[in-house]
């Protein structure tokens, strides 16, 4: 039997990961609840004044999204590493970068996309205008895949290490800074009556760069970790 085409392998890994995630729904809820809780801690910390909260909202939602997607990274490869699936993926006749891309895509669909959907609701609680809410969702839609892709490199490097969670945050958070700046910046620009176009373009460019390079770098890192 000849090996299936690369795209078929991509779809196969994607379907498998989605199925596994749907069988364990409580894991997904944890990330989402974490996101909501972090966002709602800020008004408690700085006080309920509406003007202050409105200025802070883009940054707060974005930082919470950053932390939530970082928290979810630990699960990206850990399960497959523990039961040996990852070694099979590495041995598969397809480019490992492609399979890693499929895993990241599935991971984003179950952990990133819910954040995108939920964020406008949280923004509403911070009294953001309708246009700013739309842009907030749009920036998260462009930004969270980049977070997942860059984070995959960190997750692959820290696979199976002592204290991998804390180490992962140290490695990955500095690399998330550009996405944070342009994501929160776009919403802020809209809130101040400016156009978000330039920010969104840069977010799109970052995503394009990450889609191109990150799966490959993560594949190299996985091979190193599995040796």
């Amino acid at each position: 039997m000849s090996a299936p085409a690369p795209l078929a392998a991509f779809a196969c890994v994607l379907r498998r990961d989605l199925l596994l995630a749907l069988r364990r729904r409580s894991d997904l809820a944890t990330t989402l609840f974490f996101f909501v809780i972090v966002v709602s801690l800020f008004p408690l910390g700085v006080g309920p004044e509406a003007n202050l909260l409105r200025t802070m909202a883009p940054g707060v939602v974005w930082v919470a999204a950053l932390l939530a997607s970082m928290l979810a990274l630990g699960r990206l490869f850990a399960g497959d590493y523990a039961d040996g699936t990852l070694e099979q993926l590495v041995l598969a006749p397809h480019p490992l970068g492609l399979l890693v891309g499929a895993k990241v895509a599935a991971h984003w669909l179950v952990t990133g996309l819910p954040l995108v959907v939920l964020a406008p609701l949280l923004g509403l609680a911070f009294d953001l205008g309708p246009r700013a809410l739309g842009v907030l969702a749009l920036t998260l839609l462009l930004g969270t895949p980049t977070l997942g892709l860059v984070g995959a490199i960190g997750a692959a490097l820290t696979l199976g290490l002592r204290g991998a969670g804390a180490l992962l945050s140290l490695l990955v958070l500095p690399l998330y800074i550009p996405v944070l700046i342009f994501g929160a910046g776009a919403v802020e620009a809209v809130a101040n009556g400016l156009g978000p176009g330039a920010h969104l373009s840069v977010l799109g460019a970052l995503l394009a760069l990450a889609v191109f390079f990150a799966p490959w770098a993560a594949a190299v890192a996985l091979r190193i970790s599995l040796e």
Binding site: I153, L157, L175, P178, G185, V202, A217
Partner: peptide, 27 residues
């Protein structure tokens, strides 16, 4: 493994340094 993992991180970092620098300047 430490050498090789560190190398991947350093290369990813050095690619990111200009991006971080310009985004911080924009910010």
């Amino acid at each position: 493994r430490a050498d090789r993992a560190g190398a991947v991180l350093a290369i990813v970092g050095v690619v990111n340094v200009p991006i971080i620098y310009f985004s911080v300047q924009w910010w």
